[in-house]
Write a protein that binds this DNA or RNA. Structure first.
Lengths: 186, 186, 186, 186
DNA sequence: CATGAATGAGGCTTCATTCAT
DNA sequence: AATGAATGAAGCCTCATTCAT
């Protein structure tokens, strides 16, 4: 069952949802197609399982980071950017998956995932609004700043290669710096 | 022929490459499948045609904007951000298409498109490096700043709705502002 | 296309709807499965086409018989019984098909066929009620008499063998006699 | 075990043999599939068990009715029609099942059931022939009369609804009347 | 007695593509 | 320049059945 999940994650990440056949996944997992259908209702449920696990992992990462940070907006922003950057690096493949394949979820599953995404949006927005209210962030457009920070972090999965020259810690430092710049942190 | 191109663009944008059948496209265009195959070699060529047209349109937009701008890094950055934002708004659907569906291009087509994308990257990088060299942009990480600006502009297609409250001009103003902040423009 | 229709009719009649695979039908018709799907939307539409054609044939037969008969209840009853008996003999296989496989039609098709069946019911009921009103038929239970006559005629398809001793004309004579007995025709 | 039998009966009656999956039956019975296979050899044996039980029940009903009736052809006919009508009403669903699903029995089971059906046929034929020989039934076509009576009774399962206006006793009275009419009982 | 897990065959349907006309 | 018809491969999924535990 874990093998099936992993196989689905890899196949979807490499080829995309529609380009992946259930046979592909079964073959990768080393099980028969019927065995796969014993554990999962169908291709849709597989996609959902993969996306959800990935999202939940992101949330756990964020919560840990926030819990460990001092209780002020700048520190919270740093924590969230750090967690996001690390997550994008650690789970590069699924990371892109999530952003791209949500649209292939049937409404019944989509709703469940969208709710989680909203939660994430509110998490970011909460922190930035707090900072603005406290006079720590001086940005004139908090919403666009938020979207810029998130987009910037998400994009890491597109170009970062772990075998490259930049270490993750160095990367975190840079993106924390850029994020503070974007919100105009004093 | 133009109808086929348009039909393909819409179908790919709405459903994605693999979820779109050639039948879909023919039906949308109001032609028979055999007629479609008379004009295009197959599904791959359709995708390529759609993606290329979209990219070339972007380039033309950028070149016009750069040509009309004063010859200094900050003005060039403003021009490029403005052109990109306007493009993402004007062609919201294909915009996402481009970013997502490149991966479904067979190597023979992919190479052609990747070359254009590299050109775009060099265009952005050239401007930012000029600014840094000239001491106008103070960012410590020009590459990451560039990626952040591009990612931020690309993301517009995900959330912007023309029927919303923000006008395009207002949007351009904000993103020009954010871009200057990101590169630490003096 | 006619070959496909015929193949479907035979396969459904021999094996029943659910026991017949689309492959069966294609093989019988001598075409590929994809060719079959070019002409018919699916297995359901095939079943519907077969059932409808059979029902319409029955109606045509009945209308001809009624049109050729003198305009009085007894003659009408004779005509309808004769037409029905001949139909059950002539199209023995589909005949049973109709009665059994209607239940496998999806609602969208089912409604269409049920409407025709209602028409048939009204045709029989009209004649018998006329006879009762005119005092020609003395049965105390016109509805049950009608059902008995129809059931009796339908059952012919279960046991009649064309190679047997009884000719169709003889069969018609007997069932006309039995029908008159059932409605207590004076 | 009784639960499995009942579940199979209901499923087969509602959906037909081929449209019913063994999973369906197990689910309805509230047991695992493996448990089902412990008690029954397979789907075929389930169908056979259901059909046989239903037929045997019919025979018992008939024998009781005949045993309780005076020993003359007309009374025997009345008894048999009464028993059959009551049976069709009491076990409406399985009743249709029997008539339709016999054809899905594999030869080994089919023979066993056909033998019972022949017994039933001889039972009816015996009574009617007795009546004809005794001069009580004046029908010119005893075989067709027999088939008509049986078909008429069988058809009850198609239209009778227990919540309707007609009581079973009233129904029996009518069909006894119609049966006597059909055989031309003096 | 009963179970969870697995299997291989087969179910219906759609695909991108071709070809004679 | 366009068509209706056809094709073989592949799509997702469910089937009746078995077996180790």
């Amino acid at each position: 069952m874990a093998a099936i999940h992993a196989a689905a994650r890899e196949a979807f990440a490499e080829q995309g949802y529609h380009a992946t056949s259930v046979r592909d996944i079964a073959r990768r997992a080393g099980v028969s197609m019927a065995a796969l259908y014993y554990h999962y209702e169908g291709k849709q449920e597989l996609l959902f399982a993969v996306l959800r696990e990935s999202v939940e992992d992101y949330f756990v990462t964020c919560e840990h980071a926030l819990a460990a940070a001092p209780d002020d907006p700048a520190a919270h922003l740093d924590a969230l950017v750090g967690a996001t950057v690390r997550y994008r690096v650690r789970r590069r493949a699924e990371s892109t998956l999530n952003l791209i394949e949500v649209r292939n979820l049937e409404p019944r599953y989509r709703k469940l995932l969208d709710a989680r995404v909203d939660t994430a949006t509110r998490m970011w927005a909460g922190i930035i609004d707090d900072g603005v209210r406290a006079g720590v962030f001086a940005t004139a457009w908090p919403d666009d700043a938020r979207r810029a920070v998130i987009a910037m972090c998400n994009a890491i999965a597109d170009w970062y290669r772990p075998e490259g020259a930049v270490t993750v810690d160095e990367l975190v430092e840079r993106y924390v710096g850029l994020a503070r710049t974007i919100v105009a942190c004093s």
